[in-house]
Amino acid sequence: TGYYDVLGVKPDASDNELKKAYRKMALKFHPDKNPDGAEQFKQISQAYEVLSDEKKRQIYDQ
């Protein structure tokens, strides 16, 4: 599964769309709200870390 799929956004998503999707998913799977969501929360955080950084995103998109 790709990072875009993890966040539920298209590859041409804007920074604002990425942030909005990340916040929505992070709230849904945060371990405090969803004890079984810890692994998914890590994936969401990693996806956002890469896609929100312009240089990392360019490398990922290659």
Rank of each mutant, 00 (worst) to 15 (best):
K20G: 06
D12V: 05
Y60L: 02
Y3G: 00
H30V: 02
K55V: 12
Q58W: 12
Y48M: 04
L27G: 07
A47S: 03
D5L: 10
V9M: 02
I44H: 02
Q58R: 14
D5R: 11
I44G: 02
L18C: 05
Q58I: 10
E49G: 06
D12W: 14
A13H: 00
K20P: 00
L18T: 01
Y22I: 02
D53S: 07
K56R: 13
I59C: 13
E54G: 12
Y3W: 11
Y4C: 05
E39R: 07
L27A: 14
D32G: 08
Q46T: 10
Q58H: 10
Y60N: 05
V50E: 05
H30F: 06
A26V: 13
Y3N: 05
R23Q: 14
R57Q: 05
G2Y: 15
Y48I: 02
Q43I: 15
K42W: 10
Q40N: 06
I44V: 08
R23Y: 13
Q46L: 14
P35R: 05
N16S: 13
Y3T: 01
K10A: 12
K56N: 07
N16H: 14
E49Y: 13
Q43M: 15
K42L: 11
Y48D: 02
Y4D: 04
A26R: 13
L7G: 00
K20T: 11
A21M: 02
K20W: 10
G8W: 03
A21G: 05
K28W: 06
P35W: 04
F41L: 06
Q46A: 09
K33H: 13
P35S: 05
G37A: 12
K10V: 04
A26L: 15
K56D: 04
D61V: 02
N34P: 02
A13R: 00
E39Q: 09
Y60S: 03
M25C: 13
Q46Y: 11
L27C: 14
E17S: 04
Q62E: 09
L7I: 01
D12L: 05
L27K: 12
A21Y: 03
L18K: 00
L7K: 01
S45E: 13
A47W: 06
Y48S: 03
D5E: 13
Y48F: 10
E39G: 05
A47V: 06
R57W: 04
D61F: 04
N34A: 04
Q62M: 12
Y22S: 00
Q40S: 07
D53N: 11
A26H: 15
S52V: 08
V6P: 00
P11H: 08
D12H: 08
Y60M: 03
K20Y: 09
N34I: 06
Q58C: 12
Y3S: 01
V50T: 11
N16M: 15
P31C: 11
E54D: 09
G2N: 15
Q58Y: 12
D12E: 06
L18M: 04
R23S: 09
G2D: 14
S14K: 06
Q46H: 12
Y22D: 00
P11Q: 09
Y22E: 00
K56M: 10
S45T: 14
R57S: 03
D61Q: 04
A13D: 03
Q58P: 06
Y22H: 01
G8L: 02
P31S: 07
E39W: 10
E49Q: 11
L7N: 02
Q62D: 07
K24G: 07
H30T: 04
R23M: 15
I59W: 11
E54Y: 14
G37I: 04
S14M: 03
Y22N: 01
A38F: 11
F29L: 04
Q46M: 13
V50A: 07
K10L: 11
D5P: 02
A13M: 00
V9A: 04
K24W: 07
S52D: 02
P31T: 09
G8T: 01
S45G: 05
Y48K: 01
